[in-house]
Design a protein around this nucleic acid. Structure first.
Lengths: 127, 127
DNA sequence: TGCTTGCATTGACGTCTATCGATACAAAGC
DNA sequence: GCTTTGTATCGATAGACGTCAATGCAAGCA
């Protein structure tokens, strides 16, 4: 099963569950650092909220008051973090979100674990 | 109702729901930046996973190969981000987690919204 | 009062990072 | 082939950030 607590290579005990070791902390910090820039957050949300799931770079760049190399740089960082991926199709390059990484982070931050939320809802519904 | 989508002052549409505007992106980026350091992540997890919910600084500092001012600096950043808070009691200072901020971030990152997860569980249970 | 301990603040230093202009590369059209 | 357009990479620079030693401050104790 994937995403279970405790295995070393995978991720992660959950913030509230247990103290992180150095390796887990370093790995997670990379991801959060990638999210720790307003330009990258806007890029990510523009990609993630796109119906169809894909966005051409040519649709992203003009939305910012920044140079094209700067946008390309931020996209590269998001991609290296495993948050998005891309593919070239002819002249254009398309980006899309990798939801697995986002959901891992989301589950890590939740102080009431996602499983508990679902369990609570289930209990409430069946009561 | 708090935490609902769409209001400007509050937070946030959800990454997948709609593109962020500049203000929302800047606000969220501050939070993620605070999480984007392995030392701060370890500090936060040490505080969050503590049974009783509180930790004395004197229990945090020796866990790191860093100077006491450095730890104090990181705790200050976490506090300024609204992730933790602290109180002095006599000689010692105690820190605890503010779960609201963490849960906001968790909900923001979830590609399948938390409400949907609960709704799905409810539907499944009542079916 | 003076001493000691726990924690925060200050100031300085090296490193990382966001940004840009210039350039390189890839694909399409001429 | 050459030119044009879209995107990535390179090199440089200003500012942000993590770290430390030194210092300051608050609280307890002799």
């Amino acid at each position: 099963m994937i995403g279970q607590d405790g295995e070393s290579g995978g991720c992660c005990p959950g913030l509230v569950t247990a103290p992180l070791d150095d390796v887990q902390a370093a790995e997670l910090a990379k991801l959060f650092k990638a999210l720790g820039d307003p330009v990258r957050l806007r890029l990510l949300s523009m990609i993630a909220s796109r119906s169809g799931g894909e966005v051409c770079v040519c649709d992203l760049t003009p939305a910012f008051d920044l140079s094209q190399p700067t946008i390309s740089h931020h996209l590269k960082l998001l991609r290296q973090a495993g948050l998005i991926d891309c593919e070239r199709r002819g002249t254009w390059v398309y980006y899309w979100v990798l939801p697995g990484t986002l959901d891992r982070l989301s589950a890590f931050l939740a102080t009431a674990r996602t499983a508990d939320v679902a369990a609570a809802a289930t209990a409430e519904a069946t009561a």
